[in-house]
Nucleic acid binder design. Structure first.
Ligand SMILES: [Zn+2]
Ligand SMILES: [Zn+2]
Ligand SMILES: [Zn+2]
Ligand SMILES: [Zn+2]
Ligand SMILES: [Zn+2]
Ligand SMILES: [Zn+2]
Length: 812
DNA sequence: GAGTTTGAAACT
DNA sequence: CAGTTTCAAACTC
C-alpha cells in the first residue's frame, strides 16, 4: 500500500506525513514482508514523525483507554450507490470513533474502492456507503493478534469473516493485488490483503535491490511495531520515473561521498557526504523515497470524511471564524482539507469552499470563492453559508494525543467542521487534488484520473488517516479512465491523529487561498494532480478565533506545489512530531524585524508569536495584512522559505540533511551558530562551510559529543544521587519517628544513618567528579565539594527538623 | 545581564 | 550572483 505518493509526502508537512509508525509497505517481496521484516531502519522515511510510542503501540486506543480502537477505512468498490454522486461531488465519509473502538466510514461514492488499514485491535468497524448502505466491518482487527483483516467494503461477504476472524489473517482477493499487513514488533501475524488494482504496478520492496523486482503485486503494511517504517518506493513498470529519482535525491543517504567539485577548499576527504545528486540511473536505492508510489489502484472520487466523536459532537463550529493556514513545524494536531479539482483546467477555476472547523470551541472556516484567478480571495461568503454542509469531523481528543486530519473538500461549497475535543489543534491543511495528468490531458469531469490508492492512516485516540494521492507517475502513464477503486490504508496510533483523505477530483475546482500564513503550503498534486495543502499552525488557529476572517489565497504559483520536492519534511531537528509538538516553542526576542522577517524564528516557522519577548511584533492576527504581505515577500524571494530546512529522518539517520547547507566560517560547524550542527546533523557536501569539523570522523566532533554525553550523564547521576539522599532521609524519618517521639535527645544522631552517610558521600563524589571533569583547580574543587557537603547537611538538618515537627504534631 | 560573535537573511 | 548590511540568536564573560 502506498502510504503516500512521494511527492505528496514531500509536500506535506512532516507531521502530517508521518506514516512511519504505521505503514510501511514493502511491496515487491512478499516473503520479506510476510516475515514481518522490520523496517530495518527507518531508513529515512520522510514521513516519519510520530513518536516512537505511537508507532509501537500501533493501537489506536489512547493510553487512557485500555480498549483499543481501530479505525478502518474502507475502500469499497461500490457498484452503485443509492445516492448518485456526480464525480465532481464529494463523497462524505463519516467516521465516528467513540470511546468504542468501532469506526464507521461512509463513503458517499459507491464506486470507489478503498483499502483500509487498521492498526490495532479493533473490535469492529463498519463501513457504510452512501449513508444508506452499510457495509459491516470490512475488516476486523484483533489487538491480541495484531492482525488485521480487511475486506472489500463492497462485498458484504467480508463482514462475517472479518468478525469471526479476528485471529487469523485473511487474504482477500480483489483484483490480484495483495496487501500484507504486519504488525511490526509484535508477534501478530501478517495480514494479507488484496486490493483491487487497476494498473499493473509492481510494488517495489523497500530494499533497494528489490525495488525493481517484478513482484509488484504484494504490498505489505506493517502496523505498529517500530516507529520507523521504511518507506517503499513504488515504481511503475519497474521504472523509476524522474520524479522518483528526484525524490530519492531528497531522501538522501547518510554519507556523502567526497564531493570534490563542491568545495575544493574543504578537506573533502574527511567530510562525509550525504548522498547527493542521484542521477536517475545511478543506483538509487528505491527504498529511499520512503513512500510507496507503486499503487495503481484507481482513485476514489472525492469524499468527505467525517470523524465525529460523541464527546465532542456537541460542539459545533461557529460560523464566521476563519481558518488560518500556516505550516507549523511542530503542530500537535493537523487537519488537512483536501479539495479536489478537476484535472484539466483547474488551474484557473476556483470554487468556493467554505470549511468550518471547530475545535473544541474553535471553529475554522475556510472559504473559497470561485474566482477567475486562483489568486483571488473569496471573502464574500457569510459564515452562515458555510455551515450548510453538514460534514463535521470530530476527532476525539484523546488525551493529549496529537491530531492530524486531512479533509477533502468537495467541489461545492461545503463546510467541514472538525471538532477536536482534545483541544489542541494545530494544523489545517487544505488539499486540492486533481486528477489531471501532468501532460496536460485533462481527465473528464468523471474523475477519470488515475489515482493510486493511498493509504489512510487513522489514529484514534488520535486518529490518523492519510490518503495517498496518485503518484505522479501513474498519472502520466495511465490514460485517464475512471477508476473505481482506490486503496486506502488507515492506521491508527494512539498519540497522533492524522487524516489524509484523497482529494476527490472535482472538475474545475481550484481552491483559492488568499491569505496564507507563512509556511502555508499549497501544493498541487504531483504529476499534475492538484493537491493543495494548507497547514495552519495551532497558534494560528487560536488566533483565528479572535479574528473575523481569514482568507486563504491559492498560491497558484506556490512553488511547493511543483510536484517535485527534494526535501522531506521533518520536524525541526529531526525530532519526532510528538517531541516537537510537546515542546513549547522558544520565544523570540525580535526588536527590529517586527517578527515579519525570517530573522524571526516564529515567523520563519510559520507560527504566530506567542509568549514571545519581541518588540513591535506584527506576527499576529492583529497585523494580518502586514503579515500576509511579509509572507508573500518572503515567498517571492524564496519559495521554499517556509519549508523545513532539515530533511526528515531520525537523528543520526543518513537522510537528514540541511536543504541548503551551512555557510559557516569560524565556528567549525561545531557550535549552534551552524544550522547543521544545531539540527544535530553532519555537514554535507552542499555545505559551504570553511574549516568544518562537523563530519563523521571529526575528532573534535567526537570529543564534543563525548563531552556532551558525559555532561548529561553527570547531571543524571547528580540528580539521582540527590533523589536518593532525599528518599533515604525521608525513609529514615519514617522509621525513626517513633524513636524521636520517645526520646528526642538523640535526634541528630538518629538521622545520620548509614544510608544517609552513603548518599551524602555519593553527592560529594559526584561533585568531585564534576570538578575534575571541568578541570577545576584543586582549590575550586575543594570548595565545590565543601559546598555540596553543606547542602547535604542542610538537607539532613531540614529533614530532621521536619521530622521532629511531624512527630510533635502527630504526638500532640 | 551586558557584550561579543556568528552566520542567515536581507539588501544593494 | 557577489558583496555588504542587518538581524537575532548563540556564545562569552
Ligand atoms: Zn520574532
Ligand atoms: Zn515570536
Ligand atoms: Zn513577535
Ligand atoms: Zn556549518
Ligand atoms: Zn553544514
Ligand atoms: Zn560544516
Amino acid at each position: 500500500m502506498d502510504v503516500v505518493s512521494p511527492e505528496l509526502n514531500s509536500l506535506l508537512p512532516d507531521e502530517i506525513m508521518d506514516t512511519e509508525a504505521i505503514e510501511d509497505i514493502p511491496q515487491s517481496q512478499p516473503e520479506s514482508t510476510t516475515s514481518q521484516s522490520e523496517p530495518s531502519d527507518d531508513t529515512s522515511v520522510p514521513m516519519e514523525t510520530d513518536t516512537p510510542m505511537a508507532s509501537e503501540n500501533l493501537g489506536l486506543c489512547s493510553d487512557a483507554t485500555s480498549t483499543e480502537h481501530t479505525q478502518a477505512l474502507t475502500t469499497s468498490t461500490a457498484t452503485d450507490s443509492p445516492l448518485s454522486i456526480s464525480p465532481g461531488s464529494r463523497l462524505p465519509i463519516s467516521v465516528s470513533s467513540t470511546s468504542s473502538p468501532i469506526l464507521t466510514l461512509k463513503p458517499a461514492l459507491a464506486t470507489s474502492t478503498a483499502t483500509t488499514k487498521t492498526t490495532d485491535s479493533v473490535t469492529g468497524t463498519s463501513v457504510t456507503t452512501s449513508g444508506l448502505q452499510k457495509l459491516t466491518a470490512p475488516f476486523t482487527i484483533s489487538a491480541a493478534n495484531h492482525q488485521i483483516i480487511l475486506n472489500k467494503v463492497a462485498s458484504s461477504q467480508a463482514t462475517e469473516a472479518a468478525k469471526s476472524a479476528g485471529t487469523t489473517p485473511q487474504v482477500i482477493k480483489q483484483e490480484g493485488q495483495k496487501l500484507l499487513l504486519t504488525t511490526i514488533g509484535k508477534s501478530g501475524q501478517p495480514i494479507v490483503l488484496q486490493l483491487p488494482h487497476t494498473g499493473n504496478k509492481p510494488g517495489i520492496s523497500q530494499t533497494a535491490g528489490d525495488a525493481k523486482s517484478p513482484a509488484p503485486q504484494f504490498k505489505v503494511v506493517t502496523i505498529g511495531g517500530r516507529p520507523e517504517l521504511k518507506p517503499v518506493v513504488g515504481s511503475v513498470g519497474n521504472q523509476v520515473t524522474t520524479l522518483q529519482a528526484q525524490q530519492l535525491k531528497t531522501v538522501q543517504i547518510a554519507k556523502k561521498t567526497p564531493a570534490s567539485s563542491a568545495a575544493p577548499i574543504k578537506f573533502i576527504i574527511t567530510k562525509t557526504v550525504n548522498s547527493k545528486s542521484l542521477s536517475p540511473q545511478t543506483s538509487v536505492p528505491p527504498v529511499i523515497a520512503g513512500r510507496v508510489l507503486t499503487q495503481t489502484s484507481p482513485v476514489i472520487p472525492p469524499r468527505t470524511i467525517n470523524l465525529s466523536e460523541p464527546h465532542n459532537t456537541s460542539i459545533q463550529s461557529l460560523p464566521g471564524k476563519k481558518i488560518a493556514i500556516s505550516p507549523l513545524k511542530t503542530p500537535s494536531k493537523v487537519t488537512v482539507v483536501s479539495v479536489a479539482s478537476p484535472t484539466s483546467n483547474a488551474a484557473q477555476k476556483s470554487v468556493a469552499l467554505p470549511v468550518n472547523v471547530a475545535l473544541g470551541q474553535q471553529i475554522l472556516t475556510v472559504q473559497q470563492s470561485t474566482s477567475a484567478s486562483p489568486v483571488k480571495v473569496a471573502t464574500s461568503q457569510s459564515a452562515a453559508q458555510n455551515i450548510k454542509p453538514v460534514q463535521s469531523v470530530a476527532v476525539g481528543g484523546v488525551g493529549g494525543s496529537q491530531f492530524k486530519t486531512i479533509i477533502p473538500l468537495a467541489t461545492q461549497p461545503n463546510v467541514q467542521q472538525i471538532q477536536v475535543p482534545g483541544s489542541r489543534f494545530h494544523y489545517v491543511r487544505l488539499v486540492t487534488a486533481t486528477t489531471a495528468s501532468s501532460t496536460g490531458q485533462p481527465s473528464g469531469p468523471s474523475t477519470s484520473s488515475i489515482q493510486t490508492a493511498k493509504p489512510m492512516v487513522v489514529s484514534t485516540g488520535a486518529v490518523r488517516m492519510s490518503v495517498p494521492i496518485v503518484p505522479p507517475q501513474t498519472m502520466k502513464q495511465v490514460a485517464p479512465k475512471p477508476l473505481t477503486s482506490a486503496a486506502q490504508v488507515v492506521t491508527t496510533t494512539q498519540t497522533q491523529q492524522r487524516l489524509i483523505m484523497p482529494a476527490t477530483p472535482l472538475p474545475q475546482i481550484q481552491p483559492n487561498f488568499t491569505n496564507l500564513p507563512p509556511g502555508t503550503v499549497l501544493a498541487p498534486a504531483p504529476g499534475g494532480g492538484n493537491v493543495g495543502y494548507a497547514v495552519v499552525p495551532a497558534q494560528y488557529v487560536t488566533q483565528l478565533q479572535q479574528s473575523p476572517f481569514v482568507t486563504l489565497a491559492s498560491s497558484s504559483g506556490f512553488p511547493a506545489s511543483a510536484g517535485i520536492q527534494t526535501q522531506a519534511r521533518l520536524p525541526l531537528n529531526g525530532l519526532s512530531a510528538a517531541e516537537t509538538t510537546s515542546r513549547p516553542r522558544k520565544p523570540c526576542n525580535c526588536t527590529k524585524s517586527q517578527c515579519l522577517k525570517l530573522y524571526c524564528d516564529c515567523f520563519a516557522n510559520g507560527e504566530f508569536c506567542n509568549n514571545c519577548n519581541c518588540n513591535n511584533c506584527f506576527n499576529n492576527l492583529e497585523h494580518e495584512t502586514e503579515r500576509l504581505k511579509a509572507i508573500k515577500t518572503c515567498l517571492d524571494r524564496n519559495p521554499e522559505a517556509f519549508k523545513p530546512k532539515i530533511g526528515k529522518g531520525k537523528e543520526g539517520e543518513s537522510d537528514r540533511r540541511h536543504s541548503k547547507g551551512c555557510n559557516c566560517k569560524r565556528s567549525g560547524c561545531l557550535k549552534n551558530y551552524c544550522e547543521c550542527y544545531e539540527a544535530k546533523i553532519m555537514c554535507s557536501s552542499i555545505c559551504k562551510c570553511i574549516g568544518c569539523k562537523n563530519f563523521e570522523e571529526s575528532p573534535e566532533r567526537k570529543t564534543l559529543m563525548h563531552l556532551a554525553d558525559a555532561a548529561e550523564v553527570r547531571v543524571q547521576q547528580q540528580t539521582a544521587a540527590k533523589t536518593k539522599l532525599s528518599s533515604q532521609i525521608s525513609d529514615l524519618l519514617m522509621r525513626t519517628a517513633p524513636v524521636i517521639s520517645s526520646g528526642g535527645g538523640r535526634l541528630p544522631y538518629t538521622f545520620v544513618t548509614k544510608e544517609v552517610l552513603e548518599a551524602t558521600c555519593e553527592c560529594l563524589l559526584e561533585q568531585a567528579k564534576k570538578a575534575e571533569q571541568t578541570h577545576q583547580p584543586q582549590a575550586e574543587a575543594e570548595r565545590m565539594i565543601l559546598e555540596e557537603f553543606g547542602h547535604c547537611l542542610m538537607r539532613i538538618i531540614s529533614s530532621a527538623g521536619k521530622a521532629k515537627a511531624d512527630c510533635a504534631s502527630i504526638n500532640c
